[in-house]
Design a protein around this nucleic acid. Sequence first.
RNA 1: GUGAGUGUAGCUCAACUGGUCAGAGCACCGGACUGUGGCUCCGGUUGUUGGGGGUUCGAGUCCCCUCACUCACCCCA
Length: 433
Amino acid sequence: MDIRFKSIKGMNDILPPESNIWINLEHLLREHFFMAGFREIRTPILEYFELFVRGIGEGTDIVEKEMYSFKDKDGEMITLRPEGTAPVVRAIIEHNFLKHDGICRFFYLGPMFRYERPQKGRLRQFHQFGAEVFGIQDGSIDGELIFLGVSLLNKLGVQERDFITKVNSLGCIECRKGFRESLVVFLNKSKDSFCDDCKRRILTNPLRVLDCKNDSCRALTQDAPCTVDYLCEGCSKHFDEVKRALKCFEIKYEIDSRLVRGLDYYSRTTFEIQITNNLLGSQNTVIAGGRYNSLFKDFVGEDYPAIGFAGGIERLLEVIDKKLIEPKEKLRVSFMSDLASFDVRDVLVVQKLREAGIEVEVDLATKSYKSKFKRADRNQSTFAIIKGEDEKKGGYYTVKDLRLSINSEDKQFRIKPEELCNEILRRKEIEWS
RNA sequence: GUGAGUGUAGCUCAACUGGUCAGAGCACCGGACUGUGGCUCCGGUUGUUGGGGGUUCGAGUCCCCUCACUCACCCCA
Protein backbone atom coordinates (compact mmCIF):
# COMPACT_ATOMS: atom_id res chain seq x y z
CA MET A 1 0.00 0.00 0.00
CA ASP A 2 1.47 3.32 -0.91
CA ILE A 3 1.00 5.95 1.73
CA ARG A 4 -0.07 9.15 0.08
CA PHE A 5 -0.73 11.19 3.18
CA LYS A 6 1.22 11.35 6.37
CA SER A 7 0.66 13.38 9.49
CA ILE A 8 2.54 16.66 9.72
CA LYS A 9 5.99 16.45 11.24
CA GLY A 10 5.88 16.67 14.99
CA MET A 11 2.12 16.19 15.08
CA ASN A 12 1.28 12.70 16.16
CA ASP A 13 -1.79 10.53 16.15
CA ILE A 14 -2.79 9.21 19.53
CA LEU A 15 -4.03 5.72 18.85
CA PRO A 16 -5.57 2.95 20.92
CA PRO A 17 -4.59 1.52 23.28
CA GLU A 18 -2.51 4.61 24.08
CA SER A 19 -5.56 6.85 23.71
CA ASN A 20 -7.15 5.11 26.70
CA ILE A 21 -4.20 6.14 28.81
CA TRP A 22 -4.73 9.71 27.67
CA ILE A 23 -8.39 9.66 28.59
CA ASN A 24 -7.56 8.42 32.04
CA LEU A 25 -4.70 10.81 32.58
CA GLU A 26 -6.86 13.74 31.52
CA HIS A 27 -9.55 12.55 33.86
CA LEU A 28 -7.08 12.30 36.71
CA LEU A 29 -5.70 15.77 35.98
CA ARG A 30 -9.16 17.28 36.03
CA GLU A 31 -9.95 15.57 39.31
CA HIS A 32 -6.72 16.82 40.79
CA PHE A 33 -7.52 20.42 39.93
CA PHE A 34 -11.21 20.23 40.73
CA MET A 35 -10.43 18.90 44.18
CA ALA A 36 -8.18 21.89 44.78
CA GLY A 37 -10.95 24.33 43.91
CA PHE A 38 -9.97 25.04 40.34
CA ARG A 39 -12.43 25.30 37.48
CA GLU A 40 -11.74 24.39 33.90
CA ILE A 41 -11.43 27.07 31.28
CA ARG A 42 -11.39 26.23 27.58
CA THR A 43 -10.10 28.88 25.29
CA PRO A 44 -9.93 28.73 21.48
CA ILE A 45 -6.92 27.19 19.83
CA LEU A 46 -6.62 30.24 17.60
CA GLU A 47 -5.98 33.73 18.95
CA TYR A 48 -4.83 36.99 17.47
CA PHE A 49 -1.12 37.07 16.79
CA GLU A 50 -0.78 40.23 18.87
CA LEU A 51 -1.97 38.50 22.02
CA PHE A 52 1.12 36.34 22.11
CA VAL A 53 3.50 39.06 21.00
CA ARG A 54 2.33 41.17 23.91
CA GLY A 55 1.86 38.29 26.29
CA ILE A 56 4.98 36.23 25.76
CA GLY A 57 7.37 38.93 24.68
CA GLU A 58 8.68 40.15 21.37
CA GLY A 59 12.23 38.98 21.82
CA THR A 60 11.43 35.42 22.84
CA ASP A 61 12.17 32.45 20.62
CA ILE A 62 8.55 31.40 20.77
CA VAL A 63 7.33 34.62 19.24
CA GLU A 64 10.30 35.15 17.00
CA LYS A 65 10.41 31.82 15.25
CA GLU A 66 8.15 29.18 16.71
CA MET A 67 4.60 30.36 16.22
CA TYR A 68 2.22 29.02 13.62
CA SER A 69 0.81 32.28 12.37
CA PHE A 70 -1.12 33.09 9.25
CA LYS A 71 -3.56 35.54 7.83
CA ASP A 72 -7.22 34.78 8.21
CA LYS A 73 -9.53 35.38 5.27
CA ASP A 74 -10.19 38.90 6.47
CA GLY A 75 -6.50 39.66 6.60
CA GLU A 76 -6.16 39.43 10.38
CA MET A 77 -3.00 37.78 11.63
CA ILE A 78 -3.92 34.82 13.82
CA THR A 79 -1.85 32.24 15.64
CA LEU A 80 -2.21 28.68 16.88
CA ARG A 81 -1.71 29.08 20.60
CA PRO A 82 1.85 28.21 21.67
CA GLU A 83 0.98 28.30 25.37
CA GLY A 84 -2.00 28.65 27.64
CA THR A 85 -1.45 31.55 29.98
CA ALA A 86 -1.96 34.50 27.65
CA PRO A 87 -5.28 33.14 26.33
CA VAL A 88 -6.57 32.48 29.83
CA VAL A 89 -5.69 35.98 30.95
CA ARG A 90 -7.28 37.38 27.81
CA ALA A 91 -10.46 35.43 28.49
CA ILE A 92 -10.92 36.38 32.10
CA ILE A 93 -10.33 40.02 31.35
CA GLU A 94 -12.64 39.94 28.35
CA HIS A 95 -15.43 38.41 30.43
CA ASN A 96 -14.81 40.58 33.47
CA PHE A 97 -14.26 37.65 35.75
CA LEU A 98 -12.09 39.59 38.13
CA LYS A 99 -14.67 42.28 38.69
CA HIS A 100 -17.14 39.66 39.67
CA ASP A 101 -14.82 37.74 41.94
CA GLY A 102 -11.34 39.07 42.60
CA ILE A 103 -9.88 35.67 43.33
CA CYS A 104 -10.13 33.01 40.65
CA ARG A 105 -8.54 29.64 40.17
CA PHE A 106 -8.56 28.09 36.73
CA PHE A 107 -7.01 25.19 34.96
CA TYR A 108 -6.82 24.29 31.31
CA LEU A 109 -5.89 21.27 29.27
CA GLY A 110 -5.27 20.97 25.58
CA PRO A 111 -3.03 21.10 22.52
CA MET A 112 -0.39 23.78 22.00
CA PHE A 113 1.65 24.43 18.88
CA ARG A 114 5.24 25.43 18.36
CA TYR A 115 7.31 25.10 15.23
CA GLU A 116 10.41 23.37 16.58
CA ARG A 117 12.56 20.42 15.59
CA PRO A 118 10.88 17.46 17.27
CA GLN A 119 12.85 15.32 19.67
CA LYS A 120 12.22 13.38 22.84
CA GLY A 121 9.65 15.25 24.93
CA ARG A 122 9.20 17.92 22.30
CA LEU A 123 6.61 18.01 19.54
CA ARG A 124 5.06 20.61 17.29
CA GLN A 125 1.62 19.80 18.50
CA PHE A 126 1.93 18.94 22.15
CA HIS A 127 -0.41 18.97 25.07
CA GLN A 128 -0.25 21.03 28.18
CA PHE A 129 -2.25 21.33 31.31
CA GLY A 130 -1.92 24.38 33.46
CA ALA A 131 -3.25 26.10 36.53
CA GLU A 132 -3.59 29.83 37.11
CA VAL A 133 -4.53 31.70 40.27
CA PHE A 134 -5.57 35.34 40.10
CA GLY A 135 -5.98 37.88 42.83
CA ILE A 136 -3.72 36.60 45.58
CA GLN A 137 -0.64 38.64 46.23
CA ASP A 138 1.03 36.91 49.12
CA GLY A 139 3.59 34.17 48.83
CA SER A 140 1.46 31.51 50.40
CA ILE A 141 -0.32 30.92 47.14
CA ASP A 142 3.00 30.48 45.35
CA GLY A 143 3.81 27.71 47.79
CA GLU A 144 0.37 26.21 47.49
CA LEU A 145 0.59 26.15 43.72
CA ILE A 146 3.98 24.47 43.80
CA PHE A 147 2.45 21.94 46.15
CA LEU A 148 -0.32 21.39 43.62
CA GLY A 149 2.30 20.46 41.06
CA VAL A 150 4.39 18.30 43.35
CA SER A 151 1.39 16.45 44.72
CA LEU A 152 0.27 15.75 41.18
CA LEU A 153 3.52 13.93 40.50
CA ASN A 154 3.12 12.05 43.75
CA LYS A 155 -0.35 11.01 42.75
CA LEU A 156 0.94 9.79 39.43
CA GLY A 157 3.51 7.56 41.06
CA VAL A 158 6.62 9.56 40.26
CA GLN A 159 9.12 8.74 42.98
CA GLU A 160 10.33 11.48 45.29
CA ARG A 161 13.93 10.67 44.36
CA ASP A 162 13.23 11.04 40.65
CA PHE A 163 12.39 14.71 40.55
CA ILE A 164 13.61 17.96 41.97
CA THR A 165 11.77 21.20 42.58
CA LYS A 166 13.71 24.34 41.86
CA VAL A 167 12.59 27.74 43.02
CA ASN A 168 13.88 31.23 42.45
CA SER A 169 12.73 34.81 42.67
CA LEU A 170 13.39 37.24 39.87
CA GLY A 171 12.07 40.22 41.76
CA CYS A 172 9.89 42.89 40.27
CA ILE A 173 10.77 45.07 37.31
CA GLU A 174 12.54 47.49 39.64
CA CYS A 175 14.74 44.85 41.30
CA ARG A 176 15.53 43.42 37.96
CA LYS A 177 16.90 46.68 36.67
CA GLY A 178 19.52 46.76 39.41
CA PHE A 179 20.28 43.12 39.03
CA ARG A 180 20.54 43.37 35.30
CA GLU A 181 23.02 46.20 35.50
CA SER A 182 25.29 44.34 37.91
CA LEU A 183 24.98 41.19 35.86
CA VAL A 184 25.98 42.94 32.65
CA VAL A 185 28.97 44.47 34.41
CA PHE A 186 29.94 41.05 35.71
CA LEU A 187 29.49 39.34 32.34
CA ASN A 188 31.42 41.96 30.46
CA LYS A 189 34.46 41.32 32.63
CA SER A 190 34.98 38.02 30.84
CA LYS A 191 32.80 38.48 27.80
CA ASP A 192 35.37 37.13 25.33
CA SER A 193 35.41 33.74 27.01
CA PHE A 194 31.71 33.01 26.60
CA CYS A 195 30.25 30.89 23.83
CA ASP A 196 28.91 32.72 20.80
CA ASP A 197 25.33 32.42 21.94
CA CYS A 198 26.14 33.94 25.29
CA LYS A 199 28.07 36.80 23.71
CA ARG A 200 24.90 37.62 21.87
CA ARG A 201 22.77 37.14 24.98
CA ILE A 202 24.82 39.60 27.00
CA LEU A 203 23.43 42.23 24.67
CA THR A 204 19.94 40.90 24.04
CA ASN A 205 18.91 39.06 27.18
CA PRO A 206 21.70 38.83 29.76
CA LEU A 207 19.60 36.79 32.19
CA ARG A 208 19.64 33.89 29.80
CA VAL A 209 23.41 33.61 30.03
CA LEU A 210 22.82 32.13 33.48
CA ASP A 211 20.73 29.48 31.83
CA CYS A 212 23.39 28.35 29.34
CA LYS A 213 24.09 24.64 29.49
CA ASN A 214 27.60 25.02 28.22
CA ASP A 215 29.99 23.94 31.00
CA SER A 216 32.54 26.65 30.43
CA CYS A 217 29.86 29.34 30.51
CA ARG A 218 28.49 27.83 33.68
CA ALA A 219 31.91 28.01 35.25
CA LEU A 220 32.26 31.64 34.24
CA THR A 221 28.95 32.52 35.84
CA GLN A 222 29.65 30.52 38.99
CA ASP A 223 30.04 33.65 41.05
CA ALA A 224 27.66 35.80 39.07
CA PRO A 225 25.28 37.99 41.01
CA CYS A 226 22.07 36.26 42.08
CA THR A 227 18.62 37.65 41.49
CA VAL A 228 17.73 37.02 45.11
CA ASP A 229 20.48 39.39 46.29
CA TYR A 230 18.90 42.25 44.42
CA LEU A 231 15.36 41.94 45.66
CA CYS A 232 13.70 45.07 46.93
CA GLU A 233 12.12 44.96 50.34
CA GLY A 234 8.72 43.97 49.04
CA CYS A 235 10.04 41.23 46.80
CA SER A 236 12.34 39.94 49.48
CA LYS A 237 9.50 39.72 51.96
CA HIS A 238 7.41 37.99 49.36
CA PHE A 239 10.09 35.41 48.67
CA ASP A 240 10.36 34.73 52.40
CA GLU A 241 6.65 34.04 52.44
CA VAL A 242 7.05 31.63 49.58
CA LYS A 243 9.78 29.78 51.42
CA ARG A 244 7.73 29.66 54.57
CA ALA A 245 4.78 28.27 52.63
CA LEU A 246 6.99 25.62 51.05
CA LYS A 247 8.06 24.61 54.52
CA CYS A 248 4.44 24.34 55.66
CA PHE A 249 3.68 22.04 52.75
CA GLU A 250 6.88 20.10 53.46
CA ILE A 251 8.09 20.45 49.93
CA LYS A 252 11.70 19.57 49.26
CA TYR A 253 13.17 22.18 46.99
CA GLU A 254 16.32 23.95 46.15
CA ILE A 255 16.87 27.58 45.32
CA ASP A 256 18.35 27.86 41.88
CA SER A 257 19.56 31.33 41.10
CA ARG A 258 19.94 30.36 37.47
CA LEU A 259 16.26 29.71 37.02
CA VAL A 260 15.32 32.67 34.87
CA ARG A 261 12.62 31.33 32.52
CA GLY A 262 12.25 32.16 28.88
CA LEU A 263 8.99 34.02 28.81
CA ASP A 264 9.05 37.72 29.48
CA TYR A 265 6.03 37.96 31.69
CA TYR A 266 7.47 36.38 34.80
CA SER A 267 8.31 38.37 37.91
CA ARG A 268 9.09 37.36 41.48
CA THR A 269 8.63 33.62 41.97
CA THR A 270 9.64 31.15 39.29
CA PHE A 271 9.80 27.42 39.73
CA GLU A 272 10.41 24.27 37.79
CA ILE A 273 10.01 20.59 38.50
CA GLN A 274 12.64 18.54 36.74
CA ILE A 275 12.87 14.82 36.29
CA THR A 276 16.27 13.53 37.31
CA ASN A 277 16.17 9.89 36.26
CA ASN A 278 16.89 10.49 32.58
CA LEU A 279 13.58 9.13 31.31
CA LEU A 280 13.05 12.41 29.52
CA GLY A 281 16.49 12.93 28.05
CA SER A 282 17.41 16.55 27.92
CA GLN A 283 13.85 17.89 27.95
CA ASN A 284 13.55 17.10 31.62
CA THR A 285 11.19 19.80 32.85
CA VAL A 286 7.66 18.46 33.40
CA ILE A 287 6.11 21.39 35.20
CA ALA A 288 7.19 24.99 35.20
CA GLY A 289 5.69 28.29 36.12
CA GLY A 290 5.87 31.43 38.07
CA ARG A 291 4.30 34.70 39.01
CA TYR A 292 3.33 37.09 36.26
CA ASN A 293 1.61 40.08 37.85
CA SER A 294 2.99 42.41 35.22
CA LEU A 295 1.44 40.54 32.32
CA PHE A 296 -1.74 42.37 33.20
CA LYS A 297 -0.04 45.66 32.65
CA ASP A 298 0.11 44.91 28.95
CA PHE A 299 -3.53 43.95 28.91
CA VAL A 300 -5.30 46.35 31.25
CA GLY A 301 -2.72 48.94 32.12
CA GLU A 302 -1.95 47.86 35.66
CA ASP A 303 -0.52 44.88 37.52
CA TYR A 304 -2.73 42.23 38.99
CA PRO A 305 -1.63 39.35 41.21
CA ALA A 306 -1.30 36.23 39.10
CA ILE A 307 0.63 33.01 39.26
CA GLY A 308 0.47 29.76 37.38
CA PHE A 309 2.23 26.80 35.99
CA ALA A 310 2.05 24.58 32.95
CA GLY A 311 2.96 20.95 32.51
CA GLY A 312 3.61 18.82 29.45
CA ILE A 313 1.33 15.83 29.08
CA GLU A 314 3.61 13.91 26.73
CA ARG A 315 6.46 14.40 29.14
CA LEU A 316 4.30 13.35 32.03
CA LEU A 317 3.38 10.16 30.20
CA GLU A 318 7.05 9.27 29.90
CA VAL A 319 7.65 9.37 33.62
CA ILE A 320 4.50 8.39 35.43
CA ASP A 321 3.55 4.97 36.67
CA LYS A 322 1.25 3.84 33.86
CA LYS A 323 -0.35 1.20 36.03
CA LEU A 324 -2.11 3.95 37.94
CA ILE A 325 -3.96 5.15 34.88
CA GLU A 326 -4.51 1.92 33.05
CA PRO A 327 -8.09 1.46 31.91
CA LYS A 328 -10.32 -0.56 34.17
CA GLU A 329 -11.38 -3.93 32.87
CA LYS A 330 -14.90 -3.63 31.54
CA LEU A 331 -17.35 -6.40 30.91
CA ARG A 332 -17.26 -7.01 27.21
CA VAL A 333 -19.63 -9.11 25.19
CA SER A 334 -19.62 -10.20 21.57
CA PHE A 335 -23.02 -10.41 19.97
CA MET A 336 -22.72 -12.73 16.99
CA SER A 337 -25.34 -12.87 14.37
CA ASP A 338 -25.91 -12.42 10.68
CA LEU A 339 -28.26 -10.39 8.55
CA ALA A 340 -30.59 -13.34 7.99
CA SER A 341 -31.16 -13.83 11.71
CA PHE A 342 -30.78 -10.39 13.25
CA ASP A 343 -33.77 -8.09 13.68
CA VAL A 344 -35.00 -5.10 15.61
CA ARG A 345 -35.77 -7.11 18.76
CA ASP A 346 -32.09 -7.93 18.94
CA VAL A 347 -31.28 -4.26 18.63
CA LEU A 348 -33.37 -3.60 21.73
CA VAL A 349 -31.58 -6.35 23.62
CA VAL A 350 -28.20 -4.94 22.61
CA GLN A 351 -29.25 -1.47 23.73
CA LYS A 352 -30.40 -2.83 27.05
CA LEU A 353 -27.04 -4.50 27.62
CA ARG A 354 -25.20 -1.33 26.74
CA GLU A 355 -27.34 0.71 29.08
CA ALA A 356 -26.46 -1.75 31.80
CA GLY A 357 -22.81 -0.82 31.32
CA ILE A 358 -21.82 -3.79 29.25
CA GLU A 359 -19.66 -3.18 26.23
CA VAL A 360 -21.26 -4.97 23.29
CA GLU A 361 -19.67 -5.50 19.93
CA VAL A 362 -22.13 -6.64 17.31
CA ASP A 363 -20.67 -8.85 14.63
CA LEU A 364 -22.98 -9.34 11.66
CA ALA A 365 -20.30 -9.89 9.09
CA THR A 366 -20.76 -12.54 6.46
CA LYS A 367 -18.05 -14.72 7.88
CA SER A 368 -17.95 -18.05 9.55
CA TYR A 369 -19.00 -18.21 13.18
CA LYS A 370 -15.61 -19.66 13.80
CA SER A 371 -13.98 -16.43 12.78
CA LYS A 372 -16.46 -14.48 14.89
CA PHE A 373 -15.41 -16.52 17.88
CA LYS A 374 -11.78 -15.94 17.14
CA ARG A 375 -12.43 -12.27 17.04
CA ALA A 376 -14.41 -12.39 20.29
CA ASP A 377 -11.49 -14.15 21.89
CA ARG A 378 -9.01 -11.61 20.63
CA ASN A 379 -11.23 -8.85 21.97
CA GLN A 380 -11.13 -10.51 25.34
CA SER A 381 -14.87 -10.75 25.43
CA THR A 382 -16.22 -12.45 28.49
CA PHE A 383 -19.35 -13.74 26.84
CA ALA A 384 -20.48 -14.60 23.35
CA ILE A 385 -24.15 -14.20 22.56
CA ILE A 386 -25.24 -16.08 19.49
CA LYS A 387 -28.28 -15.34 17.42
CA GLY A 388 -28.06 -17.60 14.39
CA GLU A 389 -30.53 -19.58 12.37
CA ASP A 390 -31.39 -22.00 15.20
CA GLU A 391 -31.85 -19.25 17.77
CA LYS A 392 -34.09 -17.31 15.44
CA LYS A 393 -36.30 -20.34 14.96
CA GLY A 394 -36.37 -21.20 18.63
CA GLY A 395 -36.74 -17.64 19.91
CA TYR A 396 -33.80 -17.80 22.33
CA TYR A 397 -30.15 -16.78 22.53
CA THR A 398 -27.24 -19.07 23.02
CA VAL A 399 -24.75 -17.67 25.50
CA LYS A 400 -21.25 -18.96 25.87
CA ASP A 401 -19.01 -18.09 28.75
CA LEU A 402 -15.67 -17.63 27.09
CA ARG A 403 -13.73 -17.71 30.33
CA LEU A 404 -14.44 -21.42 30.75
CA SER A 405 -12.43 -24.25 29.34
CA ILE A 406 -13.82 -26.17 26.45
CA ASN A 407 -15.16 -29.17 28.36
CA SER A 408 -16.94 -27.32 31.12
CA GLU A 409 -20.60 -28.23 31.48
CA ASP A 410 -21.95 -24.84 32.34
CA LYS A 411 -20.14 -23.27 29.49
CA GLN A 412 -22.95 -22.80 27.03
CA PHE A 413 -26.65 -22.40 27.58
CA ARG A 414 -29.84 -21.13 26.02
CA ILE A 415 -31.76 -18.23 27.42
CA LYS A 416 -34.87 -16.21 26.69
CA PRO A 417 -34.33 -12.67 25.41
CA GLU A 418 -35.96 -11.02 28.41
CA GLU A 419 -33.67 -12.83 30.83
CA LEU A 420 -30.45 -12.28 28.94
CA CYS A 421 -29.30 -9.03 30.48
CA ASN A 422 -29.79 -10.06 34.09
CA GLU A 423 -28.22 -13.42 33.51
CA ILE A 424 -25.12 -11.84 32.01
CA LEU A 425 -24.84 -9.47 34.94
CA ARG A 426 -25.36 -12.33 37.38
CA ARG A 427 -22.79 -14.58 35.79
CA LYS A 428 -20.13 -11.93 35.47
CA GLU A 429 -19.76 -12.02 39.24
CA ILE A 430 -18.96 -15.72 39.23
CA GLU A 431 -15.25 -16.37 39.49
CA TRP A 432 -14.25 -19.57 37.79
CA SER A 433 -11.03 -20.95 39.06
C1' G B 1 18.31 26.88 12.06
C1' U B 2 22.96 23.30 13.27
C1' G B 3 24.97 18.32 14.12
C1' A B 4 24.84 12.88 14.58
C1' G B 5 22.41 8.18 13.87
C1' U B 6 18.76 5.04 11.59
C1' G B 7 15.46 3.50 7.35
C1' U B 8 14.42 -4.63 5.06
C1' A B 9 6.78 -7.86 5.26
C1' G B 10 1.24 -4.97 9.69
C1' C B 11 5.02 -5.48 14.20
C1' U B 12 10.11 -7.05 16.12
C1' C B 13 14.32 -8.10 13.65
C1' A B 14 18.09 -11.62 10.41
C1' A B 15 21.10 -11.65 5.73
C1' C B 16 30.05 -12.48 7.31
C1' U B 17 34.31 -8.32 3.97
C1' G B 18 28.99 -6.46 -2.55
C1' G B 19 27.75 -13.00 -5.19
C1' U B 20 20.46 -18.00 -4.83
C1' C B 21 19.52 -13.01 0.56
C1' A B 22 14.80 -11.29 -0.03
C1' G B 23 14.28 -14.52 5.27
C1' A B 24 12.57 -15.79 10.69
C1' G B 25 9.27 -15.05 14.72
C1' C B 26 4.77 -12.72 15.96
C1' A B 27 0.31 -11.07 13.61
C1' C B 28 -3.30 -12.10 9.78
C1' C B 29 -6.31 -15.73 6.61
C1' G B 30 -7.71 -20.89 5.89
C1' G B 31 -7.89 -26.21 7.28
C1' A B 32 -7.78 -30.41 10.99
C1' C B 33 -12.92 -29.19 14.33
C1' U B 34 -20.46 -30.80 10.06
C1' G B 35 -22.62 -22.18 12.81
C1' U B 36 -18.48 -22.56 18.46
C1' G B 37 -12.71 -19.22 20.43
C1' G B 38 -8.29 -20.09 23.46
C1' C B 39 -3.93 -25.11 23.10
C1' U B 40 -1.62 -28.05 19.19
C1' C B 41 -0.54 -29.38 14.20
C1' C B 42 -0.75 -28.31 8.83
C1' G B 43 -1.11 -24.85 4.82
C1' G B 44 -1.32 -19.80 2.83
C1' U B 45 -0.92 -14.16 2.03
C1' U B 46 2.20 -9.96 2.75
C1' G B 47 7.71 -6.57 0.57
C1' U B 48 8.98 -2.32 -6.00
C1' U B 49 14.86 -3.87 0.98
C1' G B 50 12.04 4.81 2.13
C1' G B 51 12.61 7.23 -3.01
C1' G B 52 15.98 8.66 -7.17
C1' G B 53 20.66 8.38 -9.54
C1' G B 54 25.67 6.24 -9.90
C1' U B 55 29.89 2.44 -9.48
C1' U B 56 29.91 -2.96 -10.84
C1' C B 57 29.26 -8.84 -14.60
C1' G B 58 26.29 -8.39 -10.02
C1' A B 59 24.02 -3.87 -4.48
C1' G B 60 19.63 -4.46 0.89
C1' U B 61 25.05 -4.33 1.33
C1' C B 62 29.63 0.82 -1.70
C1' C B 63 29.10 6.36 -3.45
C1' C B 64 25.95 10.84 -4.31
C1' C B 65 21.20 13.29 -3.86
C1' U B 66 16.47 13.35 -1.63
C1' C B 67 12.70 12.11 1.89
C1' A B 68 11.20 10.23 6.61
C1' C B 69 12.09 9.02 11.58
C1' U B 70 15.16 9.31 16.08
C1' C B 71 18.52 11.74 19.29
C1' A B 72 21.36 15.99 20.58
C1' C B 73 22.33 21.50 20.22
C1' C B 74 19.14 25.73 20.45
C1' C B 75 14.72 26.69 23.06
C1' C B 76 11.03 25.05 26.12
C1' A B 77 6.21 22.04 29.07
